[in-house]
Amino acid sequence: MGKVLVENIRIYAHHGCLPEETIIGCQYSVDVSVKTDLSKASLSDDLVDTVDYVHINKIVKEEMAVPSKLLEHVGKRILDRIFSEIPMVKKTAVSVSKLNPPINGDVEKVTIVLKSSR
Rank of each mutant, 00 (worst) to 15 (best):
M1Q: 05
V4M: 01
L5I: 06
V6T: 13
N8H: 05
R10C: 03
Y12V: 13
Y12E: 09
Y12T: 10
Y12F: 15
G16S: 10
C17T: 11
L18R: 08
L18E: 10
P19W: 12
E20N: 14
E21V: 03
G25H: 12
G25M: 15
C26K: 08
Y28G: 11
Y28N: 09
Y28E: 05
V30S: 05
T36F: 09
A41I: 07
L43W: 10
S44R: 07
D45S: 07
D45K: 07
D45E: 10
D45Q: 04
L47W: 00
V48H: 06
D49N: 11
V51G: 00
V54Q: 13
H55W: 02
K58S: 14
I59W: 00
E63G: 04
E63A: 06
A65D: 10
V66K: 14
V66I: 12
S68I: 03
S68A: 07
E72T: 10
V74N: 02
V74R: 02
I78C: 03
I78V: 15
I78S: 01
L79I: 10
F83S: 06
S84D: 11
I86V: 10
M88N: 06
M88K: 11
K90F: 06
K90N: 14
K91A: 09
T92I: 12
S95K: 08
K98E: 07
L99I: 15
N100S: 07
P101S: 09
N104R: 07
N104C: 05
D106Y: 08
D106S: 15
K109F: 15
K109N: 15
I112Y: 08
V113N: 12
V113T: 15
L114F: 00
R118E: 13
